[in-house]
Write a protein that binds this DNA or RNA. Structure first.
Length: 204
DNA sequence: CGGTCGATACACT
DNA sequence: GTGTATCGACCGT
């Protein structure tokens, strides 16, 4: 499992789409089926330098988990009010990761609604990176924890998802030429894919 | 359904 | 001091 996640985030992305991430928190259990991710590379990828990545200028106190083993969480705080969660990919030292951009709540919907009272419909509970992190109950306190061990669980789909779309990044300023590369992966047509700045899709 | 805009506190330089 | 890997409210169609 960890070995499977230890490759380039862009190769891991199609394997993770459709996977179910569960967190048995003290408050209760919530499970999310991942429907949208975005790849980020480390500072050592000379083929595709990634100025949009938090690791672009090297290791810092915040991004440290990204330099660790695959399967761990990297959670950061942004815009003064939102948390976003990544699953670390690549072998230790490479600092590649997948930002969890969207998902569908498949267990613990009541608790997810308590955490996200503003959601009107069920599909809004985790459709967006900060929404997904909130619904799952993740904060920076969880950054660095292992998503493959208790109280977390990651279950890959039995068969690899078939209809996958790819597109450019969302919401990263100063990413420059990196917009030309397909960094974002989602399940084609899934209603829980985030709607912001929707990009033109192309087949994966 | 789709576009615009203000909020807010933290990490990093 | 500066910029932010976003959200939700509000508007128009």
């Amino acid at each position: 499992m960890r070995q499977l996640l230890s490759g380039d985030a862009r190769h891991v992305a199609p394997l993770v789409l459709g996977a179910v991430l569960t967190y048995d928190s003290p408050e209760g259990t919530v499970s999310v089926r991942i429907t949208e991710v975005e790849a980020y590379l480390g500072p050592h990828d000379s083929l595709h330098p990634d100025p949009g990545s938090h690791t672009f200028r090297g290791q810092t106190g915040r991004n440290k988990p990204m330099f660790g083993p695959a399967g761990h969480l990297y959670v950061y705080f942004t815009y003064g009010m939102h948390y976003c969660a990544n699953i670390v990919c690549g072998p230790p030292g490479t600092a590649s990761a997948l930002l969890l951009r969207g998902g569908e709540i498949v267990d613990g919907e009541d608790l997810a609604r308590t955490r996200r009272p503003t959601s009107k419909s069920a599909k809004d509970l985790a459709s967006g990176p900060a929404r997904l992190a909130t619904a799952l109950g993740l904060t920076t306190a969880d950054s660095g924890r292992d998503a493959l061990g208790e109280p977390f669980r990651l279950e890959l789909p039995v068969t690899r998802a078939r209809d996958i779309s790819t597109g450019p990044r969302v919401g990263v300023s100063g990413a420059g030429g990196s917009h030309a590369y397909p960094w974002r992966y989602w399940l084609t047509g899934d209603p829980t894919v985030s709607r912001y700045k929707a990009a033109k899709a192309r087949p994966a």
